Amino acid sequence: MEMNANYTSFVAVGDSFTEGMSDLQPDGSYRGWADLLAGRMAARTEGFRYANLAVRGKLIGQIVDEQVDVAASMRADVVTLVGGLNDTLRPRCDMGRVRGLLEEAVGKLTPSCRQLVLMRSPGRNGPVMERFRPRMEELFGYVDELAARHGALVVDLYGADVLGDQRMWDVDRLHLTAEGHRRVAEAVWQTLGHDAEEDWRALLPSAVRPGWAARRVGDLRFARQYLGPWIGRRLTGRSSGDGRPAKRPELLPYVDPRS
């Protein structure tokens, strides 16, 4: 890895995590860690270019079919690939197929960029996490293996206790808050060899846990607004990303909208 390298371009590949859900902006769009990272990289390099091909709900097979070849053709300095977690959350998941598709993606992306970055994705502490933890850890073990073989960097978000804190997650319990995305951007920034601006692993202050009644109300609201529709899409073979275009499909100069 080139420490403090002057990267001139960045392409992000993945699903809702990379699209930026749920770092919601006033105009109804999502920002997220990849946009935040691009803004920081652009501040260092004139003419910096950025593309974000991520689309919510995508499985690893769809990411390979729809995003990987496009990303490879862009020949960016940095490519991030985060995928496979949606597969592990399905009732039936062929982990052998997931591993094969990840290997295909990494094999195509590695020679097309200066630095490939993979991630061990975070998970919200709770019963759902415990149910799927074995699959997730199998996935992350393979991510580590691929990184070692191909010279990719790995950002270990899964190992950061703070990102398991329920306060870092939106009410849908699937996507990080703005603060969570900000910390992920810092984690990737540091992994790329840049000087730390903060301790992204720092724990949140202690808080009083909501009472039983408040937790049950929250559980019911979650089930009605998010869990039910999510199950419905699974049963009918639909996805929240069906028909949705890539967030930023072309590798173009990036201007931070906050500047």
Rank of each mutant, 00 (worst) to 15 (best):
M136L: 15
P91Y: 09
Q190V: 14
A42K: 00
M1E: 07
V143E: 02
R224K: 04
L192K: 03
D156Q: 13
F222S: 05
R233N: 10
G100S: 11
R124Y: 03
F48I: 06
S22R: 13
W200D: 01
W200V: 01
G193M: 03
T45V: 10
A34N: 04
G28K: 02
Y7I: 00
Y158Q: 06
R201Y: 10
P122G: 12
S9V: 04
L81T: 10
V128L: 09
R182S: 13
R167E: 13
G61D: 14
D165Y: 13
E104G: 00
M1T: 09
A54V: 02
D15T: 03
S206K: 10
F48Y: 14
M1P: 08
G28R: 02
L157I: 07
D242H: 11
S121H: 10
R182P: 06
W230H: 09
P122T: 09
L81V: 11
T177G: 09
D242T: 06
Y7R: 00
V143K: 05
P245S: 07
K58Y: 14
A34R: 03
V208Q: 15
D242Q: 08
G180S: 11
R182V: 10
G218D: 12
A160C: 14
R244M: 13
V78F: 14
R31S: 08
R216F: 10
